[in-house]
Amino acid sequence: MAGSAALASATGRSRGGGRRGRVRGGLRYLGVTPFLVYVAIWLFWPTAIVVVGAFRSDSGRLTLANVSTLVHNATILNAFKASIELSLATALAGAVAGGLLAWAVATGNPRGVLRRVVVAASGVLAQFGGVMLTFAFLATYGYTGLLTLAAAHFFGLDPYSSATWIYTLFGLGIVYTFFQIPLMVLIFLPALDNLQPQWQEASANLGGGSWAYWRYVAGPILAPSFISALLLLFVSAFSAYATAAALLSQGDPIVPLQIRTFISSEVMVGQANMGKALALGMVVVVAVVMTIYALLQRSSKWRVQ
C-alpha cells in the first residue's frame, strides 16, 4: 500500500511542476554528452580524417587522383580482389564448419560443461588476436611444426618441400579459419537455440522425417541467420590485419598489408594520402556488406514475432 502510494506520488511529481519539468527535460540530454564527446574525438575524428584525406593531394588540395589510382592501379585492384576472395572463402568454410559445430553443441545439454567449454574456447579464439593464432599455425604446419614433422616421420615427406604453402594466401586462409569457425559458433548458436523442439515434433507427427524437417522447417527458419552470420564472418576476415602481418612480413597481397606499407614506409611523391584512399575503399566494401546485413535483419524480423 505504502509502496503504491509512493509510486503514485512519484509519477505525480514527474508529471507536475510545469516549467521545472521542461527545463529538466532539456537537461536530460546533457547526460549523454560525455559519451558523445568521447566518440566524436576517438571515433568520428579519425574516420573523418581518413574520408577527407582520401580526396586531398599532398599539398592539401581537393583531388580525385587518389581515388582514381585506387580504381585503376592493377596492384591495388588485385589486392582488393585477393582480400575479397580470401574473406569469402574463409567465411564460407567457417560458416559451414562452425555451423556444424554449433549444431553439435546446441543439441547437447544446454547446461553441460561441454557447451561452456566450447563457448569459452570459441570466445578466446575468435576475439583474442591473430598473432597468437599465427604462432599456433606455424607450430602445427610450419617447417618444424608438429604435423609437418609427423608427416616426415611417418610418410617420409620432406618438411622443406611439404610445407611451402604456409606463407601463401592459402596458408593465410587456414589461419583465418582458426578464428572464423569459433566466431560462427558464437554467432549461430543463439539461432539454433531458438529452434523449438515442438516444431520437430509437429513435423514428425505430420509424417516428416529428418530430411523433411530440415528442408521445410529448420532450413528456412535458419537461412536468414546463416546468411547474416556469413556476412559478419566476411567482414571479420576482410578487416583482419594482425594474422596477415604476423605471417607475411614481406609482400602485401591483401589490402590491410598494402595500407601497412603506405603508412609505415617512406611514400612516393603524390601518394601521401594513398593509405587513406585504400582505407576508404575498405570502408566502402564493409559498408556495402553491412547494408545487405541490415536489410536482411529487417526483412527477417517477422519471423521472430
Partner: peptide
C-alpha cells in the same frame, strides 16, 4: 532519454564496421 537509445546503439556498434586498420590511418594525426 529513451529517444536516444537507437542513436547510442548505432554509435556503439559502429566500430565493428570500421576496421581497426582504417581507424589507425586516421588516428596518428589525432
Amino acid at each position: 532519454v529513451p529517444k536516444m537509445r537507437r542513436v547510442i546503439e548505432f554509435i556503439s556498434l559502429l566500430p565493428l564496421t570500421i576496421p581497426a586498420i582504417v581507424i589507425v590511418v586516421g588516428l596518428a594525426p589525432v
